[in-house]
Design a protein around this nucleic acid. Structure first.
Length: 677
RNA sequence: GGCGAGGUAGCUCAGCUGGUUAGAGCGCAUGAUUCAUAAUCAUGAGGUCGAGGGUUCAAGUCCCUCUCUCGCUACCA
């Protein structure tokens, strides 16, 4: 393995429109923190960079909803996030933010460099523009009627009623949410980064030179590269963000995905004047810790940016994790389905390391994983309390009892003692090997094995019996037990820093550098120990039930039955209604449209004729089972081609909040062609 | 539908380039033990390795088909 002079470790910038939750922690911040603490302990030159990602449309939306400025929003969450990380013990060297002055300058510079090098292409497109407000509208700022479900308040990028993703120009009767006026289409110029230009380079760099990346990361990249890369817009018409620093770009800002990763660079600048050493020297090893949703940006887009700029190094590895679920369901900020870090810290004071432990032991390294409170409790009680805490307590209590808290001498070592000592070194090496390869859960398991070793050593040597007959032998046994404890203090530090601190206090000793561990001579004979307290305490059922109850309440609130029906749409005249020609028809034929998930091709006898209708119902119905059924069909809707099939009308369906569809059909059989009015 | 990742003991996961009776932790059962937060230590039960084919002397491990879960993507009049 190549030896590097220094390390630059980045953790994904949390988006400042909400607090951080256990999913973020397990996927990114805890593993990155373990990695960095380990490197520091090894004496490596390492910096750990993070900060809030504060630009982008969602933040402006939230600000508008609350009637405050975007700056107010990001100030609020930046503070909460930063404090929660600090309280939790995530040891960033700097936690910066993308609204900082340094970042504005850095991102602008970066853009200008690429611009001057001719690395962008310019493209003019039509976008919705609000004449009254005098600005272009992001998709999210436009509402209108969803062409799919008729929901009158669909957004320009997505209809929240039916979940369809839309493009703003699809909306019927578009309206600006800023002024309420009808937006007009207007030409606007934007800059694009031609990723396709870097495709060959990226293919070679990732597919050939980085076969050692995690399979999920490598596979995802390969998928993108095989599909072929497209130019990506780097600017947007928006008033929140970093102004595009060229003439004729008034009212345009850098697209948030472009400025966010540059945040790593600007944060480094804020940390040290020596920042270029970390970003431009080939002897620096750069590692990005991210979640799987960020793979494309960090493995393809950002490297393409850095490559285009020319003077930067590229990441050596991007150990992306999968997602963490909570009690079987996907974590969701908007549905409040999460364990929020700042709330956890309030509910479980002093138990930072318990969460670190559980999230690392159950980290979604190779596939999505599930966090359950029952597992949280079990890991605390059966592993932290019973194995680690208990061993430390045994060694300490026995030493106080028999030797007044003084580290006894080693009188002589037998084979069994020697084996135990060798085992300490073996475990340490195993942990190193796991950490170097980003296998954090495995590393943690080995770390706990050290405490297991201690428990077994005590159980096998039985000092509480020998003390009656052979005090010298007991001296050796407790010396070794305490040496294991001292090793734990150092080896556990990357994983459980607060626990490591406590162990230092118990032992009245300063944890050593990593390379000094793995031996049985960390504590000197005669060294005086402090009185220990409990390292971990049991978590009782009541506390777990409290958390489960909290989640149950959230679930109740999210229950479709308690979600209010959409408000009534605006009034229409009878004349408007009578324009719709809805008939009863019978399904004569039905077949799935190949290569689609939702589309079904239907032949309908409308009484007027027999016609083809394509409908998005294939997820809920099997073709054979609906043939012969009578349905309601809107027959005078203008035809439209779907997957090459002309659809002549629309089947009326009722849809609930979960998106489940059901047919609307006559209560009793009636002739085809009967009018519905 | 396309692409990617995954489906191994009740639960959470290891199993590298195919090679003797498929592993670990938790949980469970039994025994030992009492220094310790009834903690610990030992032993054991428990798996047709998603399903079905194929290659091979030999497959959890390679190939094909199917199926389920998650993600990206197309589609939803």
């Amino acid at each position: 393995m190549k030896k590097f002079k220094r390390y630059l470790v980045t953790a994904a910038l949390p988006y400042a429109n909400g607090p951080v939750h256990i999913g973020h922690l397990a996927g990114v911040y805890v593993p990155a923190d373990i990695y960095v603490r380990y490197l520091r302990s090894k004496g490596e030159d390492v910096i750990y960079i993070c900060g809030s990602d504060e630009h982008g449309v969602p933040i402006t939306i939230k600000a508008r909803q609350e009637g405050v400025s975007p700056q107010d929003i990001v100030d609020r969450y930046h503070k909460i996030i930063k404090k929660a990380f600090a309280d939790f013990g995530i040891s960033f060297d700097i936690y910066s933010r993308t609204t900082s002055k340094t970042h504005y300058e850095t991102a602008s510079e970066f853009f200008k460099t690429l611009y001057n090098k001719g690395e962008f292409i310019e493209n003019t497109t039509n976008q919705y523009y609000d004449n009254e407000a005098g600005q272009f509208l992001a998709d999210r700022y436009i509402t209108g009627t969803c062409p799919h479900c008729g929901n009158a308040s669909a957004y320009g990028d997505q209809c929240e009623n039916c979940g369809t993703s839309l493009s703003a120009t699809d909306l019927i009767n578009p309206k600006s949410t800023i002024s309420g006026s009808e937006p007009i289409l207007k030409e606007t110029k934007h800059w694009f980064l031609p990723l396709d230009k870097h495709e060959e380079f990226l293919k070679n760099w990732i597919l050939k030179e980085h076969k050692n990346w995690k399979t999920n990361v490598y596979g995802q990249c390969k998928s993108w590269l095989d599909q072929g890369l497209q130019p990506r817009a780097v600017s947007r018409d928006l008033d929140w963000g970093i102004p595009v620093p060229v003439k004729g770009a008034e009212g345009k800002v850098l697209y948030v995905w472009f400025d966010a990763p540059i945040g790593y660079i600007s944060a480094t600048k804020d940390l040290t004047a020596d920042w270029e050493k970390y970003w431009k020297d080939k002897e620096t090893k750069m590692v990005h810790f991210i979640g799987k949703d960020n793979i494309v940006f960090h493995c393809i887009v950002f490297p393409a940016m850095l490559k285009a700029e020319g003077s930067f190094i590229l990441p050596d590895n991007v150990p992306a994790n999968e997602f963490l679920n909570l009690e079987g369901d996907k974590i969701s900020t908007s549905r409040n389905w999460a364990v929020w870090l700042h709330e956890y810290l309030e509910d479980f004071p002093g138990k930072e390391d318990v969460l670190r432990y559980v999230l690392c032991a159950n980290a979604p390294e190779t596939k999505d994983n599930d966090f359950t409170w029952k597992d949280f409790q079990a890991r605390n009680n059966n592993e932290l309390v019973a194995i680690l805490g208990n061993f430390v307590n045994r060694a300490m209590v026995l030493t106080h009892k028999y030797f007044n808290g003084k580290v006894p001498e080693i009188t002589s070592l037998n084979e069994y003692d020697k084996n135990a000592i060798v085992e300490i070194a073996t475990i340490k090496e195993a942990i190193e090997n796991s950490l170097e390869n980003y296998r954090f859960r495995e590393a943690l398991k080995y770390a706990i094995d050290l405490a297991r070793l201690g428990n077994k050593y005590l159980a096998d040597t039985e000092p509480w019996i020998l003390i009656k007959t052979d005090e010298n032998r007991v001296k050796t046994i407790l010396n070794i037990s305490l040496q294991i404890t001292a090793n734990l203090a150092t080896i556990m530090e990357p994983f459980l820093p607060h626990t490591s601190k406590k162990l230092e206090e118990f032992l009245n000793f300063q944890a050593l550098k990593w390379d000094a561990t793995g031996h049985a001579d960390l504590l000197e004979t005669g060294h005086i120990l402090n009185k220990p307290s409990l390292l971990f305490e049991k978590i009782e059922d009541e506390e777990i039930e409290k958390q489960l109850l909290k989640l149950a309440k959230t679930k109740e609130q999210n229950n479709p039955k308690s979600i209010n029906a959409n408000p009534q749409k605006e009034l229409i005249s009878y004349e408007d209604f009578s324009k719709l020609d809805i008939r009863v028809g019978t399904i004569l034929e039905a077949e799935k449209v190949p290569k689609t998930k939702k589309l079904m091709k239907l032949l309908i006898d409308t009484g007027i004729d027999k016609r083809t209708v394509v409908s998005g119902i294939a997820e809920f119905f099997e073709p054979e089972k609906i043939i012969g059924k009578q349905v309601s069909i809107l027959v005078n809707l203008e035809p439209r081609k779907l997957k090459g099939i002309e659809s002549q009308g629309m089947i009326l369906m009722a849809e609930n909040a979960d998106g489940k569809l059901t047919f609307v059909w006559p209560a009793e059989n009636i002739e085809n062609g009967a009018e519905i009015k």
